[in-house]
Design a protein around this nucleic acid. Structure first.
Length: 582
DNA sequence: GCCGTTTTCGGCCCGACTGTTTTCAGTCG
């Protein structure tokens, strides 16, 4: 059983307990535990197998939760969760997804009105049965009906790559307004999260109305959902696709927060989050006798810090922490030790070691790819077309591959300003052998081994395939290890610890695929690979010349994992990079 | 349910906004 599965059970249990009206702090304990387990790099299964007592060393896991984790792994289910599910139907839990409807209201709908499905809820709202209840009125019924309509879209997130250009533009427009002193992105977009649920912008202004009016009347704005003295929430017309299959259009919402200039730093810290990071910073503040809110850090009435973010951190004895790593994972530990990493930047990337050409499923020729790479100031690249197993991409067999390499060798002589490696993206087959013979692979400058097929195999077999590839002396890198996809296929997750340890032993590189809708090797696993000293390579897997431009999103992924240039192998010079290869 | 350089019991982050109220509870971020 995966950590994510156990974390999910605790999270579900917290939802159910909330509807039941359980102690709020007990619910929080489950939520905290869920989040901690989800970002834990060690496998809970392995910990239990070794020594269940060690579970209690995990922060937020005490005697009770340790036992629940152990029993969940042993029995395959969480007893309390199963019991609660008997009592509360799944649609009742879904009611929590309606904005404006929380656990208290759901409890009334379920216990007093005996509504157990969303259809019943809709009917009750339409017939006015709900407004009869104390604490409910016509407006609430309207909220419910609107909410049900949007429920399908609710909770949908979009890729950072879609959201960021839009909010960047909005920031620019707001910055141009008279009376607006400072504007900054906040929330998950500022933290450069891979996907974002909503958008946050912070403004410092002497007159809040100007910025709010501008946003309210913006052509992209569909509806003002809430507006107060300092805060406004709007819904935009759909401007990008969501990450769900089918990519339905979704209306994104944005919070605009206006604060006085002297509070900007405190507000920026506060609204950047993450929520978990903020809870920890406020805890640290209160341990030092301070109170921290969006207006500043206070000792009694006295303002200790408020203008700049770094002042807030300094006052609680920490260096400034980059937004990308504000996840309450280990940034406080790093900050205390003075080890906040100097995060890798796009300008430091010198090579791109994964791209395709017209020889297989790319749309540009070898020459075009080389010239595009030179334009983008790259010093070295690897041309890595598909191997024969990927028939739908016109994958290369030994004969065609050798001819392709010969072609590359003659073409690259015309481009002395860039080093071009003859590479191959070689499939790891279902039986754990490689798609091309060793003697062919031995002729390559750079070999990427990847999984494309047989992902429904059991965990052990997939792990074995990866281990075999790593042991092959001709393989240089494991390509786009789709941690998330594998993790989501029941029974097909891999043993990352085993794979990473083998990679570390054999000097095999790991890849972050920079494509914004892929971003394979998520930040947790990338951080884990870094811990083991495995060099990480950020590649575009470009299928066209413009495909080389997605590098930025991979950089963000690496930054969230806390990687600095020394952890990223393609920041090395071509010569240094070659030396790194076994 | 967790946790401890005030505490093994009594805390647990904090404020804005809305709707239903007539001073506040619920919800949200």
């Amino acid at each position: 059983m995966t950590n994510a599965a156990i974390a999910g059970m605790f999270s579900d249990l917290a939802d159910l307990l909330e509807i039941e009206g359980a102690n709020a702090f007990r619910i929080r304990a489950y939520r905290n535990a869920s989040r901690t387990l989800d970002s834990l790099t060690d496998s809970l299964e392995a910990i239990v197998a070794e020594d269940p007592g060690k579970l209690m060393q995990i922060p937020g896991i005490g005697k009770d939760l340790a036992l629940k984790i152990q029993l969940t792994i042993e029995t395959g289910q969480l007893e309390q969760l199963e019991q609660m599910k008997e009592k509360i139907p799944p649609d009742v839990v879904r009611m929590l997804c309606i904005p404006g409807i929380g656990p208290k209201k759901v409890a009334v709908l379920f216990r007093k009105l005996h509504l157990t499905t969303l259809d019943q809820l809709k009917h009750a709202a339409q017939t006015g049965a709900i407004s009869q209840q104390k604490g409910f009125a016509k407006k609430t019924e309207q909220i419910i009906l609107e909410g049900l309509e949007h429920l399908e879209q609710m909770g949908l997130r979009m890729f950072l790559a879609d959201a960021k250009p839009f909010v960047d533009q909005m920031v620019q427009e707001l910055a141009g307004l008279t009376g607006v002193d400072r504007v900054c992105l906040a929330g998950s977009v500022r933290r450069l999260k891979e996907t974002v649920g909503d958008l946050d912008i912070l403004v410092a202004a002497s007159a809040p109305d100007q910025a709010m009016d501008y946003l309210a009347n913006h052509p992209q704005t569909d509806k003002v959902l809430a507006r107060g003295e300092t805060k406004q929430r709007v819904r935009f017309h759909p401007f990008a696709r969501t990450i769900t299959p089918g990519g339905s259009q979704v209306a994104m919402e944005m919070d605009l927060r206006v604060v006085p200039e002297e509070s900007f730093g405190a507000a920026l810290q506060y609204f950047t989050g993450s929520k978990e990071h903020n809870i920890e910073t406020r805890k640290r503040a209160s341990q030092r006798g301070f109170k921290l809110n969006e207006y500043g850090l206070f000792r009694g009435e006295e303002v200790v810090a408020s203008v700049e973010e770094k002042d807030i951190y300094a006052a609680i004895d920490l260096p400034w922490i980059p937004p990308e790593i504000r996840q309450d994972r280990n940034e406080f530990h790093l900050a205390e030790a003075g080890e906040i990493p100097d995060l890798v930047e796009l300008g430091q990337i010198r090579g791109d070691l994964h791209m395709h050409t017209t020889a297989t499923d790319g749309r540009a020729t070898i020459e075009e790819m080389i010239e595009a790479a030179i334009e983008r100031k790259l010093k070295y690249i690897a041309i890595t077309d598909h191997s024969k197993r990927v028939t739908m991409a016109n994958g290369l067999d030994a004969t065609r591959l050798r001819a392709h390499w010969e072609n590359i060798r003659s073409i690259r002589e015309q481009y002395p300003e860039i080093e071009v490696l003859c590479g191959i993206e070689c499939d790891i087959l279902e039986d754990a052998t490689l798609d091309l013979d060793d003697e062919v692979l031995a002729e390559a400058d750079f070999v990427i081994a990847v999984l494309h097929y047989g992902l429904k195999q059991p965990k052990d077999q997939i792990t074995k395939r990866l281990l075999n590839a790593i042991k092959n002396p001709h393989v240089h890198m494991i390509g786009h290890l789709t941690g998330r996809l594998l993790g989501k296929r029941p029974g097909a997750e891999i043993s990352f610890e085993d794979v990473f340890k083998a990679a570390a032993d054999h000097g095999v590189l790991m890849e972050i695929n920079a494509h914004p809708s892929r971003l394979d090797l998520n930040e947790i696993h990338a951080a884990q690979a870094k811990e083991l000293g495995i060099p990480i390579v950020i590649n575009t897997d470009a299928h066209s010349t413009t495909g080389l431009d997605v590098m930025q999103w991979g950089i963000y992924q690496a930054r969230r994992a806390g990687l600095s240039a020394k952890d990223v192998a393609n920041t090395l010079t071509a010569k240094q990079f070659r030396k790194l290869l076994r």
